[in-house]
């Protein structure tokens, strides 16, 4: 039987995979708004920053709805038998990416942190931190896409390892930013420092969730194949 027929007959499984990818796309796009948020804060543009917080919140709500729909589809179907629970786990970790974006951005709408303190945060490369977080999620997408390819076993393991390395990279940048922030040379309000620390840690969950998802991919490879 040609690969075309295999593709046609395994359409249900392919659709589930597409569902996972579209959920990831939406979650990552939600997290992408962290970049303009940070840029607005850097430019002291409070209104734009709050607009980004709102956009992220709205998108996260949509991501949640997509997640619920995807879970219903996967649970109700007979596809990916034996690894369906792992697909659901994958969807959950993907949803956590959008959750992390929302929870981290909300900090800026909850308290009016002085720009002096925010500038102190930006003494280190926060933009690069956010970019690494998003790169982790992008690498995860490439790894998930590999599930649909032939001879993908070794490739998925390699790509999952790449996601893990990227997550470690994000961790290192975060630690470096945090080290500077906690020195608090400008004697800022400790509560503001704590909130900015929380922003970094919660935003880091974008990479952590991507890494968790890549772990699920490894489980899928182990259980899905012989």
């Amino acid at each position: 039987m040609s690969s075309h027929w295999f593709k046609l007959l395994s359409r249900g499984e392919d659709e589930v995979l597409q569902l996972v990818l579209s959920n990831l796309d939406f979650s990552t796009n939600t997290a992408r708004h962290l970049t303009p948020l940070v840029e607005s804060l850097k430019k002291h543009d409070k209104a734009s920053a709050l607009q980004e917080v709102k956009t992220i919140g709205d998108m996260e709500t949509q991501a949640d709805a997509m997640h619920i729909k995807a879970v219903e589809t996967v649970s109700g179907g007979s596809f990916f038998g034996g690894i369906r629970e792992d697909i659901l786990e994958l969807l959950e970790t993907i949803d956590n990416i959008a959750d992390a974006a929302k929870d981290s951005s909300r900090i800026f709408s909850q308290r009016d942190i002085p720009f002096e303190t925010i500038d102190y945060l930006f003494k280190r490369d926060v933009a690069s931190f956010i970019k690494t977080l998003l790169d982790t999620a992008d690498d995860l997408k490439i790894a998930i896409q590999a599930l649909a390819q032939r001879n993908a076993k070794a490739k998925i393991v390699e790509l999952a390892t790449k996601v893990e390395r990227k997550e470690e990279e994000a961790d290192e940048i975060r630690v470096s930013i945090l080290d500077n922030l906690l020195r608090n040379e400008i004697k800022a309000d400790p509560l503001d420092i704590i909130l900015l620390k929380q922003f970094l840690e919660v935003a880091d969950d974008v990479a952590d969730s991507s890494e968790d998802a890549s772990d699920v991919l490894l489980v899928l490879v182990v259980k899905g194949y012989t």
Binding site: S3, F6, K7, L9, S10, G12, E13, D14, V16, L17, S78, F79, F80, G81, G82, I83, L147, A148, Q149, R150, N151, A152, K153, L220, V221, G224, Y225, T226
Partner: peptide
């Protein structure tokens, strides 16, 4: 049977492996 399955799966994707498993089961 398991050995045949192991040797065949390398050339197909996970969704196809899953579909074949379902059908054969």
């Amino acid at each position: 049977i398991y050995e045949v399955a192991t040797r065949s799966e390398g050339s197909i994707s996970l969704p196809t492996v899953s579909w074949i498993n379902r059908l054969v089961l």
